[in-house]
Design a protein around this nucleic acid. Structure first.
Length: 442
RNA sequence: GGCCCCAUCGUCUAUCGGCUAGGACACCUGGUUCUCAUCCAGGUAAGAGGAGUUCGACUCUCCUUGGGGCUGCCA
């Protein structure tokens, strides 16, 4: 049995579209499932857009998503000589011919055209779309070399696939029509056409191809917004494939084991940011606590907060993780949602202040509470709660809890209040209560 | 215009002739609760339309409608 080889062949334009990376994901999974090789081909023939930076961005994107490839990346520009040799061969055999043409943008010159069959049908069995057939008369001859002598996509793509010994081409739906041309090119070059699987497009709510107008459309944007690569990977996979049962959150191993091209859907899928967000939250919840903790610390420090005073012996990081992990939807939520633990110069939400602090009697309430916290025998979440519970006499702790929360954190939502106070410690709790009483309360 | 592809809740999907059409997201309700979130329980919501095949069609065939793709010296 011949070795299975698939490739992802993007043009490096600096940004990798999610529709495109989904093709990479399917290729990768197919290779891993079958024990074949996954290759990366950089189609860098557009010298305008193919900058070193763009290529670097492509590599970063691949690495971020864990799309490892098994051979050094193949640069299309380095194979131009081969492309042109193949053209000479086609020309010599009469399978291509030179011809005067005028391009869309008005350029006139001599190009090389590939001769398509004039009768009969061209057909192939697409692994996802099924049997495809087209009458030869419906497909015209097409250009393979520009008037400036450079090879055109169809030719370069096919020659590279031959040279890289690609056995299965898994790519976007937009290439279906090209496939009829490519199959003839393979045959004309004396090669056996590979198997094909065409993936539907990702569309927007209107059913049009998903573009940057519809929200984040490039992998880098999801990364910036704090999405986890595995969550994006998992979500994109589910957009057009399912494991055959009701599992949705899958490990990489499960994906690799269960993935088959035959199970990939033909229909276009609409991109649902809400479900991606849910998926991301699922992945955040599943991060092992030590990993969550170190990433959390990294992000807090990156946010400009000095953690030297918050070592493990003086700050209960485990408690913070307990409180924060279920409340974190994106990595980018941190440090915004916990900054007040690490600076006394925290932001007060104006609405929260208005609602909870700028009220008659709150000043006295906060000062009284500061006093009571000072007198607590032990300062932890349990004793704090017991104390407030006693004050409320079973009528609900809201009147005490809400002002305290805003006073010590500046906001209305967040960790459990008493855990929050324990994390802040007695001194900071008391000084913040007093400060807020003076500054905001009536 | 020509050629090709597609069609189940708002969205992603299960169903490969027997369906009281299942799950997930979103949404709504209730519970837990000091907020938010988590978690738990429940709810609303679908087979584009029309013929045919069949004892029986969401599932098969055809037509209509709707959507998408391609129709470059772009990839």
């Amino acid at each position: 049995m011949e070795e299975i080889r698939v490739r992802f062949a993007p043009s490096p334009t600096g940004k990798v579209h999610i529709g495109n990376i989904r093709a990479a994901i399917y290729n990768w999974l197919f290779a891993r499932h079958t024990g074949g090789k996954f290759l990366l081909r950089v189609e860098d023939t557009d010298l305008e857009r193919s900058t070193p930076e763009a290529i670097k961005a492509l590599f970063e994107c691949m690495e971020w998503l864990g799309l490892s490839y098994d051979e050094p990346e193949f640069y299309q520009t380095k194979n131009v000589k081969r492309h042109l040799e193949c053209v000479e061969k086609l020309l010599a055999e009469g399978k291509a011919y030179k011809c005067e043409r005028t391009s869309r943008d008005g350029k006139t010159g001599e190009v090389v055209m590939f001769r398509m069959p004039k009768e009969g049908t061209i057909e192939f069995d697409d692994i996802v779309k099924g049997h495809m057939a087209k009458k030869a008369e419906d497909i015209q001859d097409f250009a393979i070399v520009r008037s400036d002598g450079s090879p055109i996509f169809h030719l370069a793509n096919v020659v590279d696939d031959i040279d890289q010994r690609v056995t299965h081409i898994i790519r976007g739906d937009d290439h279906v029509e090209n496939t009829f041309k490519h199959i003839e090119l393979f045959k004309a070059l004396g090669a056996t056409p590979p198997k094909y699987g065409h993936l539907s497009m990702i569309v927007n709510a209107q059913g049009k191809p998903y573009s940057k107008r519809d929200g984040a459309a490039f992998v880098g944007e999801f990364r910036e917004q704090g999405y986890l690569p595995d969550a994006l990977f998992n979500y994109l996979l589910l957009l057009g494939w399912n494991p055959g049962d009701e599992r949705e959150v899958l490990t990489k191993d499960e994906m690799v084991n269960l993935f088959t091209l035959e199970a990939v859907h033909v229909t276009a899928a609409k991109f649902d940011m809400k479900k991606l967000q849910w998926m991301n939250a699922e992945y955040i919840k599943r991060i092992p606590r030590d990993e969550f903790m170190s990433e959390m610390k990294r992000r807090i420090e990156a946010g400009g907060y000095d953690l030297s005073a918050f070592k493990a012996d003086s700050f209960n990081w485990d408690l913070l993780v307990d409180q924060l992990q279920v409340r974190t939807k994106f990595w980018s939520d941190i440090p915004g949602n916990c900054a007040y633990f690490f600076t006394d110069d925290y932001q007060f939400d104006e609405k929260a202040v208005e609602k909870r602090l700028r009220k008659e009697g709150v000043k006295e309430l906060l000062l009284d509470l500061a006093d009571r916290f000072a007198k607590l025998e032990k300062f932890d979440a349990a004793s704090g709660e017991a104390m407030v519970k006693e004050l409320s006499q079973g009528n609900g702790m809201g009147p005490w809890v809400h002002p305290i929360r805003v006073a010590v954190s500046g906001r209305t939502e967040g960790p459990g209040l008493f855990e929050m106070l324990e994390l802040l410690g007695r001194d900071r709790t008391i000084s913040r209560l007093k400060a807020a009483a003076e500054k905001y309360a009536l």
